[in-house]
Design a protein around this nucleic acid. Structure first.
Lengths: 196, 196
DNA sequence: GTGTCAAGAACGAGCGTTCGCTTTTCATTG
DNA sequence: CAATGAAAAGCGAACGCTCGTTCTTGACAC
């Protein structure tokens, strides 16, 4: 029973997903045909269907992968010791959003739109959502900025605001255009810092 | 040359767009078939094609209408005299986003996603974008909040932050879930208000 | 040689669009 | 004011094309 090695199998899977991601970024989920993906992956239809049950599963896989990568990126920011201040964290967060704007950020906007009518993708995001919230709140908790220390706002509420500033930045950067990451971050920091 | 009245023509057009909007909200732009729209509009294929050159034009029309309605809603907030403070404006802005979350807000997320790969829709948004920015900045300018008055941040920069909080709220409300408009607004106001 | 893997032609369903026909509308006319 | 006719409005079956999926065939590893 001649089978391919597990590593080769994973490689093929990655090869398909890489092609799919590139196509989706260029044409969108539903404008991309199976043939587009197969051609780019240099694979035949028969071959690909051994790895994915169909197009929907590929879309779901890409969406999942993208959501996870965003969560992981934010998670990773909470790691450094000693805990950074918000004046350090916010610019890093905005810079992260800025770097990802043309790749995962663009895809994220597409996924969010898709989630509005596709229950599978919506469920997928909702599973990951608590982790994003938790990661941002952890960031706020460690930084312990003045508005929290003085009891003006809670960690949870400030976390929600900051959590919505990140997609807000991506949207503004990708759709409205004309926004500078450093200025954007500096403005947020200024608002969170007591008067000079 | 017997034609239908201009009012009747507009009514038919509206009838088609209403059906299309409902279908798009349920199934998404590309999952919706022409037949879905035609059935809901109680119109035949031949009939509808006298009003729109094709499906793409209907999608563009709905997207345009939606973007315009959002702009108009924000524009309308800048009207009242005397100028309201941000402590009054922010809750109204968040409440507006909250009310629209299941209709125009949901559609907006879909449109933003679509704009990532559809140049027509992207261009359409970019045309409207300056007006949204201007409207929010006008709101900030009139309110003249402490962080602006003290020169800590500019009207433009604070405007951009607030402008990105609105879609941020919609996204959080529709995707992550579990966010309260009043709490959300109150937190923003607290951050913009000098220490007690 | 046996069973997995990949290829690629072929299939069938679904889609957007068109086209020829019928119905409706309204200015014109007797 | 009723009859008329011509053109627009609307209908819906049919077309042609695309696309996702399947299935048969051959190749290769063990």
């Amino acid at each position: 029973m001649p089978r391919i090695s597990e590593a080769a199998r994973q490689a093929r899977r990655t090869q398909i997903l890489d092609a799919a991601r590139a196509c989706f970024l260029e044409r969108g989920f539903h404008q991309t045909s199976m043939d587009d993906i197969l051609t780019r992956a240099k694979l035949s239809a028969g071959g690909a269907y051994r790895y994915f049950s169909g197009k929907d599963e590929i879309i779901a896989a890409i969406a999942h992968e993208n959501v996870s990568s965003l969560t992981a990126a934010i998670d990773a920011m909470a790691v450094p010791e000693p805990p950074p201040t918000l004046a350090e964290t916010i610019p890093r967060l905005v810079a992260l959003a800025d770097q990802m704007a043309d790749g995962p950020g663009k895809l994220a906007l597409m996924v969010w739109g898709e989630a509005q009518t596709d229950p599978t993708i919506a469920a997928l995001i909702q599973t990951e959502a608590p982790r994003v919230r938790a990661a941002v709140q952890e960031l706020v908790r460690r930084a312990n900025p003045e508005p929290v220390a003085s009891g003006k706002v809670t960690v949870e509420n400030l976390g929600n605001i900051i959590a919505s500033l990140v997609p807000g930045y991506i949207l503004q950067r990708r759709i409205l255009g004309g926004v500078d990451p450093d200025t954007y971050a500096a403005t947020i920091v200024a608002l969170l810092t007591p008067a000079d």
